[in-house]
Computed example of a mutant assay.
Amino acid sequence: MRIDLAADHDAMGGSEMMMLLAAQACVELGHDATVWVPTETGEVAREADRRGLTVRGVGARGNASYMRRLRAGTARSDADVLWCHGLRPSFATAGLPRRIAHVYQRPRPLQRPALKRALRGADAVVVPSHSMADIAPNTHVLWNWCEPIDAPETVHEGPLSVGYLGRLSMEKGLGVLTDALAELPDTELVLAGTPRFVISSERRIIEQALDRVADRTDRLGWVTASELFDRIDVLAVPPVWQEPFGQSVIEAMSAGVPLIVSDAGALGEVTGDDYPLCVAAGDARSLAAAIQAVAALTHEQLQGLTRRLHHRWEKHFSPDAGRRRVAALLDQLT
């Protein structure tokens, strides 16, 4: 089977990484896969090339140009399936045959008309979690997955190091986390990420929140999950919005890093309903209590927790698990 996979952006983000993993899964299943991107010099194209994937850039100059050229190019393609990763390519190719519309985030109110058009005529509408299954009738849930990440080897001494991984934003719970840590003087915050795609007014609010713990915060910028995990004792993922999946959660599970999540969106679905370190979204006191609970765990208790997380990753969120789900999705279309 010949499969075209269309990117949402030229820059690497969550949906772009999942598109590349999906393309690799298609190739491993014996299919011919081509990744369509705005330009052949962007981040996504370079990463696809590094992974040995076939790349097709459309020479776009901006979003409107990309959508026009993507529609024209994929309409002429002889591929058996067009798999659109994100709202932009799904909207651009609305109505084309043999099409998968993969929606990674719950649409905001102003995006709902675009989503309605984007899903028109799709052979499958794919979402990353059951918590998002209500965005359209007959959605197909395809959990994300991630590549294996080695367990950290460093044994930390001194204050408990609490990690944060991803876009710096208030909806991701950064304000709740700084509120919690402000009540825990024997902790430090290790930030991996930047306020990419965040408007300037929210950036000021983020900086005000970080000022509360600035004297014990280490800001790493954009680094790999592995680089962060080598520096921390526990990862906090405390979003206050309806998190559609939680990629950093499964990365921590792969590496066997202790993890605290909020109950927002899909996070409970990813960790399992009975996960003990799940707190109410937006509740800084509960988050602080969970951080203290991690600090009080014995070595044996920590090992038991991380073994449990890694086993769940291996069963549900490893490349093997992802490849099986891709095969099942493609089988639906044949």
Rank of each mutant, 00 (worst) to 15 (best):
R106I: 13
D150G: 10
G86I: 11
T139I: 08
V125M: 06
V198Q: 05
W313N: 05
T298S: 15
S201P: 07
A33D: 13
H9L: 15
A321L: 09
R323M: 12
P89Q: 05
G13I: 01
D123K: 08
L165D: 07
R285V: 10
M253T: 02
V237Q: 03
D274E: 13
D211V: 00
V81A: 11
A79N: 01
D186W: 10
Y104C: 11
Y275E: 13
M132L: 12
L305C: 00
R312V: 03
P113W: 02
H299D: 14
R285D: 13
F91V: 05
S15G: 14
A60H: 12
A25V: 06
D123P: 06
L142S: 08
T194Q: 03
R308A: 12
G322I: 07
S90D: 09
L329G: 08
Q105T: 09
V279L: 11
A72R: 07
P38S: 13
S286Y: 03
T271N: 02
G265N: 06
R203L: 04
I206H: 05
E153L: 07
F197T: 12
L191I: 15
R106W: 10
P159Y: 01
L297E: 00
R56Y: 05
Y104A: 15
L20M: 11
H156I: 00
V162A: 11
A151Q: 14
R117C: 05
P238M: 09
L82A: 00
Q301W: 06
R307Q: 14
G282V: 01
E28K: 13
